[in-house]
Design a protein around this nucleic acid. Structure first.
Length: 235
DNA sequence: AAATGCTTCAACCGCAGCTCT
DNA sequence: AAGAGCTGCGGTTGAAGCATT
């Protein structure tokens, strides 16, 4: 479901990432972080542009990303925050730890958007039911409309002060304790607990240091789980 | 079984905004 | 203050997989 790999006129690779590229990117970010995406591919031995590397890392490779199945509560949050903020996907993503703006955007367009403008549409009801939204079923049994779907007993009500972010998550606690020395790895993944176990080992000459070989990839920190069907790295 | 249409999602592009000099 | 460089965001696209005919 991805674009076929190809090289543009500048010799930059585009399209789907292969396992080898992922390994290189992970190894490099593990060892050096990513203070400069633009320079990163050069030092990491990738024929990609910095943007592509950043996107790949942020949306697919960084630790503690959740994938697949959105819970009814997550759907609720997305729906509510979208009502409140519109297409501010990054803002919405802040309230859903482990979800990326891109993923939320995709999910919105493929799953939730269709419910926005359809009020008591019966096919909509069926979709929600079939998606296993128990709260929805309960509510419908009580004679509520789809429009009221977002006001669930189990859901968190949205106010301007409300954040869905789990402030007790290891993610954030690590973030707050993380020091400058990690060179602002990034806003989110730096906060992931698994990073705590890593000695990132930044050196002062890090950006002048040439690409570290693939062998630098430390298999102890992650392994690839069935690449292709479940292209996820377990840290 | 084959053809066609639809859905999903990874990845691309352009632009806005921020930082640095 | 202005310009360059970089990052991050949001819209869009392309193609695999799935469903339907």
């Amino acid at each position: 479901m991805v674009r076929a790999p190809y090289f543009d006129k500048n010799g930059t690779k585009k399209g789907a990432w292969c396992e080898e590229e992922d390994k290189k990117l992970i190894a490099y970010v593990q060892n050096h972080g990513h203070p400069n995406w633009r320079q990163l591919p050069k030092f990491a031995g990738l024929q990609r542009c910095g943007k592509s590397c950043r996107l790949r890392w942020m949306n697919y490779l960084r630790p503690n990303l959740k994938r697949g199945n959105y819970t009814p509560k997550e759907e609720q949050i997305i729906t509510d925050l979208h009502k409140k903020h519109g297409n501010k996907w990054s803002l919405i993503a802040e309230s859903l730890p482990g979800r990326t703006d891109n993923e939320i955007k995709n999910y919105w367009h493929s799953h939730l958007k269709k419910f926005q403008n359809s009020n008591n549409n019966s096919s909509c009801d069926e979709d929600l039911k079939s998606n296993g939204c128990k709260e929805f079923e309960m509510e419908m049994n009580e004679g509520h409309s789809v429009e009221s779907h977002h006001i669930l007993e189990s859901s968190v009500s949205i106010t301007s002060e409300t954040s869905y972010t789990d402030h007790n998550s290891p993610c954030l606690s690590f973030c707050s304790s993380h020091t400058e020395s990690t060179m602002n790895l990034c806003k989110e993944e730096e906060s992931v607990a698994s990073w705590e176990t890593l000695d990132l080992g930044f050196s002062s000459n890090f950006w002048t240091e040439p690409f570290i070989s693939e062998n630098a990839l430390d298999e102890d920190y992650f392994h690839i789980s069935s690449y292709g069907t479940e292209p996820f790295y377990l840290w």
